[in-house]
Design a protein around this nucleic acid. Sequence first.
DNA 1: CGGCTTCTTGACCTAAGTCAATGCTTGTGG
DNA 2: CCACAAGCATTGACTTAGGTCAAGAAGCCG
Lengths: 278, 278
Amino acid sequence: MHPYFSQEVPYAGLIQSSVRADFLLLDGDTPGGPMTSAEHSPLTRKLSAFVALSEAELAVLERLHQRRRTFAAGRDMVHQGQSDQAAYILSSGWVCSYKIQPDGTRQIVDFQVPGDFLGLRSVLLRTSDHSFEPIVTIEAAEVLKSDLLAAFAQTPRLATAILWAASRDEAMVVEHLVGIGRRDADARMAHFLLELGSRLALVGIGSKDGYDCPLTQYHLADALGLSAIHVNRVLRQLREGGVVTFRDGHVTIHDHDRLVDLAEFDPAYLDQTGPLLK
Amino acid sequence: MHPYFSQEVPYAGLIQSSVRADFLLLDGDTPGGPMTSAEHSPLTRKLSAFVALSEAELAVLERLHQRRRTFAAGRDMVHQGQSDQAAYILSSGWVCSYKIQPDGTRQIVDFQVPGDFLGLRSVLLRTSDHSFEPIVTIEAAEVLKSDLLAAFAQTPRLATAILWAASRDEAMVVEHLVGIGRRDADARMAHFLLELGSRLALVGIGSKDGYDCPLTQYHLADALGLSAIHVNRVLRQLREGGVVTFRDGHVTIHDHDRLVDLAEFDPAYLDQTGPLLK
DNA sequence: CGGCTTCTTGACCTAAGTCAATGCTTGTGG
DNA sequence: CCACAAGCATTGACTTAGGTCAAGAAGCCG
């Protein structure tokens, strides 16, 4: 296939095992010391926006972050082994989850940014059927099934909050489906950039005016169901139109209103209406 | 206040249930032998294909079907009221769940066929943000939140089974996303028809050679992210190619192998590998 | 009957894909 | 310190899958 064809991924990506994830471990020496409330993890930040957590609950949540690990960019970390009963809480870096088609094309289903869970479902229910790839070198806290269930049993409200986050993730997948099915390339891109901005703002990364974003145009293409070349054209148009600039790993929003308008962006599905559970 | 948060957390118990289910599994707890599912509800049939349920569990399951209701075709039944804490088990007829865009186009996210849950998520987690429309007059059993949670508490293995079904539904949404993003119209259609056939076969409707299907070409268009006119063209091609005929509310599969080939259909995501919890 | 909805087909158009070529970095080995 | 490769980004020229428009046809139903 043509080297420019973005959907191609190396065959090596198809044969990872849960064991190999351990090989990718670069260091395990970062002891997750107790955090002061000033330096809460992104997940804590995210959940706190919706559920007012007590001191005890916060403590349990922070304790879930103890087993810190680092994964190198580019190599898949997959959760499909019955043996691997762990999920991860992403504390820094970006990950994408995707499925490969038999013909080699790939579709990115979702991105994970700091504060997001990775493989939560494979712990609570059955094994996940798609793969995870760190986009940059990431830091994540490993959460064992037993830890998670224990935490849930101790603090039911925490369970509620985490399940709320999982449910929100699912709503994003549905919105993604709608976007690919019924929005043109420009609107899709605009919508995507807005959603990302919204998610990042929730964990205190970036602002209304923009955010750092390590994705390549190939990532965008595979996520939005477009070709990388068309992604480039769309980005140029948005840039020259003075709406938004995606360049050098940074998204700069010049005209937020016009972007929202273009995307017909209605953030209702993100359910970000402020702290609800007092 | 958000309906999701309006009640004290029920999930702790739910999660506990699934833990206990695993325990029972490991214990080798032997439920009653397989029984003829002919007289059972579609949901029972479906779950029985994956989890060997005991007499007691079957009884609880059947009891969930008591509050039977009928809904006329075409008129939306939406679940977003705080007051409406019910889900439905579809026992006959077809439903679609969809989202409307601000510009009036709609994207069908999923179809529900007999044996499927409707609005399960809005009971267990938060309110669903999309609408449901019965495609034909349907019969459904209303399940109150309290009933469901009681059933889960009584029979943890049933909880596992139902959550498995929910998880499978989600995998179908993801596969749907992949299809719209990365398959051309023919493959999308082929894949869709095969998935439907597979789902229906699971509840004893239809066979390898075909099944009844009340969808219009407009439904197909809205589900597959195509125009109705193109759906018509694709169907004609498939029909004239001797692969599959969609006509007069019936799908007839002439060449199953070629259809699978066209769709690059890999049913792995449907997780239909036979009874798993013995 | 006349008004629905659904299906069908042809003619034409456009958004997006494909092909091909060119820079621009960044990293790496000689 | 250069050469050279690899990965991204960019752009123009051309092709095509699928959308849009228009017009019937074929039921079906009050």
